[in-house]
Simulated assay, not measured.
Amino acid sequence: MARRALLGAAVLAWAGLALAAPVQPDLPPARKVAVAAGATQALSGTLKGYQLADYLIPLEAGQSVVMQLRTSNPSGYFNVDAPGATDGAMFIGSTSGNRFETVAPVSGDYLVRVYLMRNAARRNEVARYSLSVRAGAHPGKAAASDARVAGTPFHATASIRCMPAGGQPTTCEAGVIRREAGAGTVRITLPGGAVRHVAFADGKAVSSDGPAGLEVERAGDTSVITLGSGDRIEIPDALVTGG
């Protein structure tokens, strides 16, 4: 009898937790929006409560993009996830504002999500929004004279100094795809196997596909980069430019 009473209490407790959990609406499919190079696309709509609006914006590695959100509700924001990202957004509007300007670190579909912060969503507030997306020109191509490393897409590979978040200094494997005028993308394999891409423009590191962007310091002829994940990498100028 006591066992039945305990079982009944457990079932009731589980049911109570289930009823207390917030009910999320079905997530609508993301809308793919191709933005012509040099053009601006305006996206608009209305959100209520926990509703979301998702867009997929195709970009090429090295292509610049500017996104600007205007909304009737001060709790309306947008996030941006790099293609294939699983560990956090590369841009978070609630902490960084409603304007995002970057150089795409990798080619693919960038997920842009418009949403209301929880404080407004739980009150079932409404937000009318307009999101403008301006894509830059297609990135320059690599010089034909810049040979590739056999069996890879890279123009050069190297072991570079790195330090995982909370870890000890070590080395990471990196490869670069170079483009014109000091532009390119460096692919880094971190200890543990995670992969990050860092985009360069005019020889300077400008963006990463990891969570929360990056910070850059200069040490001689090296870019010392701290990723939003806390990982630290050192990329020599010679790897990027070939000089």
Rank of each mutant, 00 (worst) to 15 (best):
A89T: 12
M90L: 14
M90T: 15
F91V: 07
I92H: 08
G93I: 05
S94P: 04
S94N: 12
S94K: 15
S94W: 08
S94F: 07
S96Q: 15
S96E: 12
S96H: 13
S96N: 15
G97K: 10
G97P: 12
N98K: 15
N98M: 13
F100G: 06
F100L: 06
F100K: 06
F100I: 07
F100E: 05
E101A: 14
T102P: 07
T102S: 12
V103T: 15
A104Y: 06
A104N: 13
A104Q: 12
A104W: 14
P105W: 03
P105L: 14
P105V: 09
P105Y: 13
V106R: 12
V106H: 06
V106N: 03
G108M: 04
D109N: 08
D109K: 07
Y110Q: 06
Y110N: 10
Y110P: 08
V112C: 06
V112G: 05
R113T: 08
R113E: 09
V114M: 00
Y115L: 00
L116V: 02
L116T: 01
R118A: 14
R118W: 09
N119L: 05
N119E: 05
N119S: 06
A120R: 09
A120V: 05
A121G: 04
R123P: 01
N124P: 00
N124R: 02
N124A: 00
E125R: 06
A127C: 02
Y129K: 01
L131W: 03
S132G: 01
V133A: 07
V133R: 04
R134W: 05
R134F: 05
A135L: 04
A135G: 02
G136W: 04
G136C: 07
G136K: 06
A137C: 02
H138R: 13
P139H: 08
G140E: 00
G140R: 08
K141A: 12
K141I: 01
A142R: 08
A143K: 02
A143G: 01
A143P: 01
A144Q: 02
S145K: 11
D146G: 00
D146Q: 09
A147N: 04
R148W: 02
A150K: 07
G151S: 08
T152Q: 05
T152Y: 03
T152M: 00
P153G: 03
P153C: 03
P153A: 03
H155Y: 09
H155I: 10
H155D: 14
A156F: 09
A156S: 09
A156D: 09
A156I: 08
A158D: 11
A158L: 10
S159C: 07
S159V: 14
I160S: 14
R161D: 15
R161F: 15
R161Y: 13
M163K: 15
P164G: 11
A165F: 10
A165G: 07
G166Y: 12
G167H: 05
Q168M: 11
